[in-house]
Amino acid sequence: MVKEIERAGFPVVQMCNLIPVATTVGSNRIVPTISIPYPLGNPADSKEQQWKLRYHRVGVALDALATDIQEQTVFKVKI
Rank of each mutant, 00 (worst) to 15 (best):
K76H: 15
V31G: 00
T23Y: 02
I30N: 01
Q14Y: 07
S27Y: 01
R57K: 05
A64N: 00
C16V: 08
E6T: 02
E71V: 03
A66E: 09
V58K: 08
F10I: 11
V74H: 06
A8F: 12
G26C: 05
P43E: 07
G41M: 03
L62E: 12
R7C: 09
E6H: 01
Y55H: 15
W51V: 11
N17P: 02
I5Y: 06
I69D: 07
G41N: 06
T33W: 00
D63A: 04
E48S: 12
T24D: 04
A44L: 15
N17F: 04
R29C: 00
P39H: 04
V74G: 08
A8M: 14
L53F: 15
G9W: 11
L18D: 15
P43N: 08
M1T: 04
Q72N: 06
P39L: 06
C16L: 06
S27P: 01
F10W: 08
R7K: 14
H56F: 13
D68Y: 07
V21T: 11
V58A: 11
P43M: 07
K47Q: 15
Y38A: 11
R7F: 09
A8I: 10
V77E: 04
A8N: 14
T24W: 02
G41L: 05
A64E: 00
E6D: 02
V13Q: 03
P43W: 04
C16R: 04
S35L: 06
L65P: 02
Q50K: 14
G59H: 03
W51S: 14
E4R: 06
A64R: 00
L65K: 01
I69S: 07
Q49Y: 14
V2L: 02
L18V: 14
K52N: 14
T33R: 00
I69E: 05
Q70E: 12
V12L: 11
H56T: 14
N17M: 04
Q14F: 07
T73L: 11
N28E: 15
K78H: 13
T23M: 07
I30P: 01
M15D: 09
M1P: 06
S35Y: 05
